[in-house]
């Protein structure tokens, strides 16, 4: 298997690498469930979480993942706007890289930030914790681990993703992963929330949620940012959005009994997802959160590891 230097996105991974990370994540679940949640795997490694966008849950997940593997984890919240000039980004990156961390975990509102920084920083592994509307690989690996636990393999299954596909990095990463792993994606949104030529990912496009539900093995609800909806005239009101694209238990029945419910969080209850669904047994939303830590442990371990080679012990 090709070893990993950075993790920018699903686009750069092949099937073998994706499955490797998911399986590795699976083996870390156990450590998280012990009373003593610590392994020395990354002892002496430094991980910097550099977050230019607020994200308590992703940052916390990376922090816990690093700490449970005994890495030294430092969190930096750098608030910046997308329009602010970028020298500060490069300067920040170079300054932190000069302190010799092993891994830089980056969240930024500008697509391509990780690729950009990697070009200028040597000797630092970069993990994309979400860049603009581009990719969010650790979220997708988390989802794949959740689906592995539920189904064994996602191959041949149909995942129906609903919401603001246009601005969603989660959507893009899933659309790429679906092709590589052989599952089907249906995306559901009004045209105002779809990116140009999205069907070229090989997904099915629906505008009517109820039409998309039959035959779905999982429904994946994306978070709605209400200001984004109404400011850009993408939708007239939250009320109408909920009526057209909100998931409630009544609607979920159309998908069949075994359909799972996923959400990358944080949820807007009563907007894209009703409480009765969010808290139902079909909901794997908290499992996603748990698996998020395991996947991030796997990603950090994989990036800190050598070239692979021999399996087994001494």
């Amino acid at each position: 298997m090709k070893s990993l230097k950075h993790l920018f996105g699903i686009a750069d991974l092949d099937r073998e690498q994706i499955e490797y990370l998911v399986n590795l994540g699976d083996s870390f679940i156990d450590i998280n469930r012990r009373s003593l949640k610590k392994a020395p795997t990354l002892r002496g490694k430094t991980v910097i979480n550099l977050f230019f966008e607020n994200s308590t849950r992703t940052r916390t997940s990376f922090e816990i993942a690093g700490k449970r593997l005994s890495a030294d984890v430092i969190n930096i919240s750098a608030s910046t706007s997308a329009t602010k000039k970028g020298e500060s980004l490069l300067d920040t990156g170079q300054t932190l890289a000069a302190m010799q961390p092993h891994v830089l975990v980056i969240r930024h509102s500008i697509s391509g930030t990780c690729e950009f920084l990697a070009e200028h920083l040597e000797n630092t592994a970069i993990v994309n914790a979400g860049d603009g509307a581009h990719e969010h690989p650790t979220q997708i690996l988390t989802d794949l681990l959740t689906l592995k636990q539920a189904w064994g393999t996602p191959e041949g299954k149909t995942i129906t993703m609903v919401g603001d596909i246009a601005h969603s990095r989660v959507a893009r990463s899933h659309l790429l992963a679906a092709k590589k792993l052989g599952y089907k994606m249906r995306i559901v949104a009004p045209r105002t929330l779809l990116p140009a030529e999205v069907e070229r990912y090989g997904c099915e496009v629906y505008h009517d949620f109820d039409e998309a539900l039959p035959g779905s093995d999982a429904v994946y609800m994306l978070r709605v940012q209400s200001e984004r909806l109404t400011d850009s005239c993408a939708f007239p009101s939250i009320r109408e959005y909920h009526e057209a694209y909100g998931l409630n238990s009544q609607r979920l029945k159309k998908a069949g009994d075994d359909c799972l419910v996923l959400h990358p969080g944080p949820m807007n209850r009563g907007v894209e997802i009703a409480t009765d669904v969010a808290d139902s047994v079909k909901s794997h939303i908290l499992a996603q959160v748990e698996h998020g830590v395991a996947i991030r442990m796997a990603v950090l371990a994989a990036l800190c590891g050598g070239d692979g080679g021999d399996d087994g012990k001494e």
Partner: peptide, 22 residues
Amino acid sequence: LDISFYRDDLDTIAPNPEVRPS
């Protein structure tokens, strides 16, 4: 016990993804 994550040679080998939980 699976001691994969307790090895002291991560720098030379990649972690083994085969699931043999402790």
